[in-house]
Nucleic acid binder design. Structure first.
Lengths: 197, 197
DNA sequence: CGCCAGGTAGACAGATCGTTCTATCTCGCT
DNA sequence: AGCGAGATAGAACGATCTGTCTACCTGGCG
């Protein structure tokens, strides 16, 4: 990877994440990277390619974070807690601006668009990882629990950049703990007649 | 309210919600509404005003939904369930594209922008309403529980337009039921030393 | 030495953006 | 009758957007 390309991707990532995908134009990116337009289009054939490269880099960073969080953890539950803690750390970080993927898909709702598909791919991977971790934690129903976990994560990431992150992280942590407790005492909630599918 | 203005707001709402705020230009809106540019700018001084009007209309619609959901419910818990059911109904609706407010704030991260502020106002109102309902439900700690509820809602709305809505709604319902159960059996989760604020 | 990938610099095209403007028309109200 | 609010129709503005193009420079490698 050439050095100009690296600078380009770094500038694009910072600007796209903090200001939005449509709001940041090519000119902003090349000015920030200290690179000319021709150089950008040499490495990325179009802006869409740059957007996908940005999301791909974010995806790889998160995969590395998850890998780091799960290593050395004896129980699956502790691994889940470590992943949750890593997410909370991100929310607490100054400049946190929500989930890069949820923000991206808000701007590209068309499922056929490569940006949208990159988001779906990342989310499917994450759901699978959490499901695997919860299965190792002895969860009787790992998949619903993983969906629950991801739902809390999405909500925490969405709210974490709109209000004080501290209570958001605390609520998230509490939710995850409650979730992990279910593996012993499954809930049988009341169900209204003729409603559920 | 003039009829042209109503058509304008209806077209703007549909287009902004389904395609995004930056992606939809003035020309698209006036073409869809069957109205000329001058007419639009007579009613809305700028696009930002139109965006705020769109979010204000959405806010009022949701307030009406919540009011409908809570009327006639004897217990606060049932009112919370009704609100959750109303949210799930929205997620199941064809054309659902996530939370209009979370999508909007993804495109307008600047807290000083009127669009961003409209989102914050709506979210604060919603948190307050849920807190009130959970207090009526006999929740010992209504505010953390309300934050938990909103977190689940945000996650459900975010995921509901990316995958099959049915399991998302089921996970959401389960989460809400688990949440309502806490008012009898408060959780005292383990806490790592020197970490929490 | 000669070549060429990869970079700089900047003009340019074509489209779209939000916004303003003039000119005309059609109602309803006084 | 007359006036003005609200609508139509459409040209035009300046800015910005993505993307292409030409021309030149530089350093490493065969």
């Amino acid at each position: 990877m050439s050095e100009a390309r690296a600078r380009l991707l770094a500038s694009a990532s910072r600007l796209f994440y903090s200001e939005g995908l449509h709001s940041v134009g090519i000119d902003r990116v090349i000015a920030d990277a200290g690179v000319t337009r021709a150089t950008l289009y040499r490495h990325f054939p179009s802006k869409d390619d740059l957007l996908v490269a940005y999301l791909t880099a974010a995806d790889q960073a998160i995969r590395a974070d998850v890998e780091t969080a799960r290593t050395g953890k004896t129980s699956g539950a502790d691994a889940v807690r470590a992943v949750a803690e890593s997410i909370a750390d991100g929310i607490r970080t100054p400049g946190f601006r929500g989930c890069a993927f949820l923000n991206a898909v808000a701007e590209y709702p068309d499922p056929a668009h490569p940006v949208h598909q990159a988001v779906l791919t990342h989310r499917q991977w994450f759901l699978d990882v959490v499901t695997e971790l919860l299965a190792q934690a002895g969860e009787t129903a790992p998949e619903p629990a993983a969906r629950h976990f991801v739902m809390l994560r999405d909500g925490a990431m969405a709210a974490g950049c709109l209000t004080d992150p501290a209570p958001v992280c605390e609520t998230f942590r509490l939710g995850v703990e409650g979730l992990l407790k279910y593996r012993d005492t499954p809930v049988v909630p009341p169900r209204k007649p003729g409603r559920a599918s």
